[in-house]
């Protein structure tokens, strides 16, 4: 077996809060293989969002070790982390986090702008990505002209535009109705199956976790459960 894509050892993260030290992560050991579709579950305050931020290179852990694709993330500079986020990671957020006053197309191609891809090629790729999530017809619409489900699909298109190795989705259906949630999860599942993208989905809904192959539960900054729901790998 090759080295895991995501490898965390003894991860800790603490914040000072009113003179006290809050341990959001309290020794997390986790390995996620390339091509897995994993759900991270837990109540709010369990540390799952903090773990997501660390895995996404948005925040540095206080202690421990984190290797992404064999690279020790702790040793990278801020700019190198930015490049890593740009190339290897795609984000899908609960509140979509599209930039207002920009069309769907402009939002989707923004990662390519930061990657230095020329405008013409970037627009073609962005249109292809929108096609994949079924929204090519709305390419010119701004976020406030779209429904929540549509905005989330635009943000999925933005997440996959750079062909990332891993897509991190933080409560991707948290703000959506059942029908839109199913649409979004179907698209993510499809991406996983057809492209082999590694997916890590943070959720507190069991039916969303049920789309995944592996389920990790967290509590008080620790991993308390790790089970294979239906695996390619043997348990």
């Amino acid at each position: 077996m090759s080295a895991p894509l995501i490898s965390c050892q003894e991860l800790t993260k603490s914040y000072p809060l009113r003179g006290m030290e809050i341990k959001a992560l309290n020794g997390v050991d986790l390995a996620i293989e390339d091509g897995e579709m994993t759900a991270i579950m837990g109540a709010s305050g369990s540390g799952k969002s903090t773990l997501m931020n660390v895995i996404g290179c948005m925040d540095r852990p206080t202690g421990g070790r984190y290797l992404l694709d064999g690279v020790d993330v702790m040793s990278l500079t801020k700019d190198e982390l930015a490049h890593l986020r740009n190339r290897k990671i795609g984000f899908v957020f609960q509140r979509y986090n599209l930039l207002p006053r920009m069309s769907a197309l402009q939002n989707v191609l923004l990662p390519l702008v930061y990657a230095g891809v020329n405008a013409g090629r970037a627009a073609n790729r962005a249109l292809a990505a929108l096609e994949m999530v079924g929204l090519a017809a709305l390419a010119g619409n701004q976020p406030n002209q779209m429904s929540g489900g549509q905005q989330q699909r635009v943000s999925i298109a933005r997440a996959l535009i750079n062909d990332p190795q891993v897509i991190l989705a933080d409560e991707p259906t948290g703000a959506l109705d059942t029908v839109s949630s199913a649409e979004v999860m179907t698209i993510l599942k499809e991406l996983h199956q057809t492209r082999g993208v590694t997916l890590v989905i943070v959720t507190h809904e069991a039916d969303i976790a049920a789309y995944c192959e592996r389920m990790i539960t967290m509590r008080d900054g620790r991993i308390t459960g790790d089970s294979i729901i239906k695996g390619k790998r043997g348990a």
Binding site: G56, A82, R85, N97, L99, Y114
Partner: peptide, 16 residues
Amino acid sequence: TREIGIRMAIGATQRD
């Protein structure tokens, strides 16, 4: 601030 966070998440460097 949020926009800055989004831009950083998708790959904007500090210099950007």
